[in-house]
């Protein structure tokens, strides 16, 4: 075998292996990108926002809509207590979602939020949310799960309606442990 062939082929193999690694490097890069622009759901389990109540913006009203989703196979009953609220930016509000385990075994659920339009995502502050932790349900147990949120007064003016959707997944990782 010709040495110069082996050398060049070796370099190209290294390039291919490096690009395989680059595929995995895209994962943290994507996380960083999402954190910077405030989109995506890979930013880890959402944690409580620290908000200082500067006092509500009393001239402004924003409609917040609540949606509950579950995957086809997920054996939950899952719905919001109210489907929409009119809120003042800068003021804390409480609401809740109701979930019931429809099976005869214990289930662990994890709610994953999504805000539309995406631009509003980083202005939707949750100080308390059932989505921060996984939720354990006894067989056929049903309960309300609380949510406290505030719309940041910096929410761009043209956004008058914000939709918060939760998808309630069965958390297999936790269930397996």
């Amino acid at each position: 075998m010709n040495d110069s062939h082996t050398t060049l082929a070796g370099k190209l193999v290294v390039l291919a292996v490096a690009m395989f690694g680059f595929g995995f490097l895209l994962v943290p890069l994507y996380d960083i990108f999402c954190q910077v622009v405030g989109i995506g759901s890979r930013t880890g389990t959402p944690t409580a926002a620290v908000v200082s109540e500067e006092g509500p913006d009393t001239d402004r009203r924003v409609i917040v809509e609540f949606i509950a989703n579950r995957n086809q196979q997920a054996p939950w009953e899952f719905r919001p207590a109210v489907t929409s609220m009119e809120v003042m930016p800068g003021k804390l509000y409480d609401t809740s979602y109701f979930a019931r385990n429809l099976t005869k075994r214990e289930l662990v659920g994890q709610a994953v939020p999504s805000v539309a339009p995406g631009q509003a995502n980083k202005y939707f502050k949750k100080t308390e949310c059932f989505c921060f932790t996984s939720q354990e349900f006894a067989p056929e147990e049903g309960r309300d799960m609380g949510l406290t949120f505030m719309i940041d007064p910096d929410l761009p003016r043209h956004i008058e309606r914000v939709t918060l959707a939760y998808t309630f997944f069965i958390n297999q990782q936790v269930a397996a442990n």
Partner: peptide, 15 residues
Amino acid sequence: GTSFFQAAGGGDPVL
């Protein structure tokens, strides 16, 4: 059991 793309475990299908 990884969660690169599974939303339930903190992943994102868009990735």
